[in-house]
Simulated assay, not measured.
Amino acid sequence: MERKYYFFISIFLTLIIGWGSLAPIGDSMPSTISISDKAIHILAYFLLTLSWLFSYKKESKKLKVSIIILVIVFIYGIIIEVLQGTVTKNRQPEAYDLLANLTGIILAITVFKQGLQKNF
């Protein structure tokens, strides 16, 4: 896939995660779904980080670029948590959400460096 497609996917995921994190929580989610909030954070930030790594695949071979992506995605997560505490009425920031975000980010970088980068 061309870089521009990965870039589009990255922007889309960034916006969707931002919207999903700041949208009001209502009764719209069926009660039969029992997915851990932290698992959702891990998966979301795993996919977000992976998409940005693929967007800059050639540059991501350098550890410095991967670390920059890690830092930017983590800061994005911090901004989202702060906004949850300031601009939403029924959401609050949680330190464990940031830990889950960081777990997803580190997993993505590990998976990318260990195998995906070589195959794409």
Rank of each mutant, 00 (worst) to 15 (best):
L43A: 15
D27M: 05
I35P: 01
M29R: 08
V71Q: 02
I68G: 03
L50F: 15
I35F: 06
V73R: 04
L22A: 11
L47Y: 02
I72C: 10
G20P: 01
V65A: 12
V71R: 02
S36W: 05
L48M: 10
F74W: 09
I35T: 03
T49K: 04
L22P: 11
S51V: 03
A39Y: 02
F54E: 12
K62T: 05
K64Y: 11
I25V: 14
E59Y: 09
S51H: 02
I16P: 00
S66K: 09
P24W: 02
K62A: 13
I33K: 03
T32C: 03
W19G: 02
I72M: 11
F46W: 12
E59N: 12
S21V: 04
I25R: 10
S28D: 10
P24S: 14
G77R: 09
T32V: 07
K38A: 10
I68F: 13
Y76K: 02
S31F: 02
D37M: 05
S66P: 00
F54Y: 14
I80K: 09
S60C: 13
A23I: 12
I25W: 01
F46Y: 15
K38N: 09
D27R: 06
L43T: 15
S36K: 08
L47R: 00
L53N: 08
K58P: 01
F54D: 02
G26D: 15
I67R: 07
F46A: 13
G20A: 06
I67M: 11
G26W: 08
S28E: 10
S51Q: 01
W52R: 07
I68N: 08
E59K: 15
I17G: 04
D37C: 07
F46S: 12
L47E: 00
I75E: 00
S36M: 07
V71D: 01
F54A: 10
G77N: 09
Y76T: 01
